[in-house]
Amino acid sequence: MEKQRATLKDYGYRDFTVMNKIYQILKKFLVVFIIFGLYISIIVIAIQSLNESRIISEFTRLSFKWYGNIFQEEELMQAIKNTFLVSGIATVLATFLGTFFAIGLYALSKKVRVIWMLLNNVPILNADIVTGFSLMLMFRLLMVVFPNIFGLFTLVMAHLFFTIPYVVLSVMPKLKETDPNLMDAALDLGVRPYKALIKVVIPAIKAGIFSGMLLALTMSIDDFVISYFNTGAGFDNLSIWIYAVIGRRNLTPSVYAFSTLLTLFTLLGLLIYSFLQKQKKGRKNEKNNINGRAS
């Protein structure tokens, strides 16, 4: 009798080529579908911004007039100004305060720190509507003492409340990564603690500070729900203003133009950032090569 030969299958090999092909096709389909879903609204905004007609259901002719009109639309301009004012103040303050708060929290013992980090997460995890509504109620109670509190002040306070945690969260991991000896070395060399903090620790964690700042800005500039509850005295940011105008059904196409410009600028900024990052890496490699050759 002939000896049975072990086949590849007996060794546990299975043929996946057919399944792989199906997966490849499915994959392409899904990627296209998801990109479509993510981008369709932005594309539509861009199309609407280029439409000459004010009627949003019909494309009449290509025109750039809404782009020129942005500055003529007084209400829109006011909303844009308010948005940048609130987000600007909130982002700068949140980045500055959040960095120092994170350093302070990091200096605590781990047990205590965990509790405060949990509280720090509350504004992030809590639903916007609960945060917004409850803050509004607190400010309302304060109205007994400060009658004109609603407006810029309440908006900035509310924005600080939910932006600082993002800064703290992005700075904290960088603090953990820094070499604790760095600080000791600075102190041994006779630098006073707070000077060492600014000269040694802050530069070491600046990537975290930067990403925290970007996060804070993103969250603040696009916020709708919390701002909606905490604004007052006609101080509308862009989201609130758009939401109100949608109800009245006469949104100026200049909004679409502004939004498209903002998206393009963001894209450009990210491309430049990524390009610079690449160059930096390239330069580093070059340096290493030269050093390598020299030794």
């Binding site: 932005i42 539509v44 259901s57 494309f59 696009d222 758009i242 939401y243 963001t266």
Partner: peptide, 26 residues
């Protein structure tokens, strides 16, 4: 990237193209 443009505006334009007569249809 889409998260960087205004949420309300994105939703509104999505609602526009989901209705019967819309700019994409034209």
């Amino acid at each position: 990237l889409p998260m960087w443009s205004n949420l309300i505006l994105r939703t509104e334009s999505l609602a526009n193209i989901m209705s019967e007569n819309n700019i994409l249809k034209s």
